[in-house]
Amino acid sequence: MNFEISDLLFPGFTKKALRELDSSYGIEFFYEFGKDYYWNEEVAAWGERSLSIHGPCVALNLADAKQKNYAKVWDKTFAYAKKVKADFVVVHTNEELPASEEQEAVQARVIRRLRKVVNLGQKYGVQVLIENVGLRPKESLLFDLAEYIALFDIFPEAGALLDTGHANVNGWEIPAVVEALGDKLKACHIHDNDGLGDAHLPLGEGNIDWKAYFAAVKKFAPQSTQVLEYCCGFSDTQSLEEHLAGLKKKYRLK
């Protein structure tokens, strides 16, 4: 089972800690938070390992009709992904939803824009993964479970990225989602919470049933990359690697 570490855990001036990460673990990084010269230096320092890119999700919202520059932003993102030979790029369908529009209209806009994004990914030969995003408590859930799964009928070229934290907050039965996605599930953002908010906690610090989750992954989506998308709990890679070793032993992960 391939594991990657999201650089969400090491923001700003702490990011150089990732240079010490064992090369058997990949790295997923938020490309929008740095210039190319910055990422060039970091990627070189990370050495030979698997890489993936988290696409723009703070300064860009596909659901916002006022944002017309999304294609240019995504073109630049995919160009860099190709340059560093990223295994995949993560795409959010939306962030906050427009307050005065019908959900169906916003869904139609996002699907139109996703078509352009997916096509750009294909242009650069980069695998596009569509993440389940949006949280019911924040009224930002644009695609419910059935609608999210249906996206992969609309975009068979794309793969799925299941975010366990988002799924838990939205009340989805996570092992069943893994089974439903099957070989479309190319990667997962794994982190924990109490079901009330998207806390990005280390595994075991919330109420997600990780035994059931990993059993489902091993059975239905063994090809999926497991990306630890923590925001807290570790300040260095040594303790993080010890945590990962503990997870592998506990859940019998190879």
Rank of each mutant, 00 (worst) to 15 (best):
G171I: 01
G165W: 05
E179S: 13
F143T: 09
A176G: 12
N168P: 00
P156H: 10
F143Q: 03
D153V: 07
P156F: 10
N168I: 00
A160G: 12
W172Q: 02
L151Q: 04
A167P: 01
V177Q: 10
I174K: 04
G159I: 06
G159R: 13
A167Y: 00
V177D: 08
I154K: 15
E157A: 14
G171F: 08
K184A: 09
P156T: 10
G165V: 04
L145R: 15
I149Y: 10
K184F: 14
D153C: 05
D144F: 08
L162T: 02
A150I: 11
G165C: 01
K186F: 14
K186T: 11
L185F: 10
A176I: 04
P175Y: 06
N168V: 00
I154Y: 15
W172V: 07
L181Y: 02
D163P: 05
I174C: 02
E179I: 06
A150F: 08
P156K: 11
A158M: 08
T164G: 02
V169W: 00
G171C: 09
T164A: 01
A167G: 03
D153Q: 13
D144I: 10
E157N: 09
A180N: 12
E179Q: 15
K186A: 15
A158L: 13
P156E: 06
F155I: 11
I154N: 07
K186I: 11
N168Q: 12
E157T: 07
E179D: 09
D163H: 03
I149D: 09
F152N: 08
A146C: 05
A176V: 09
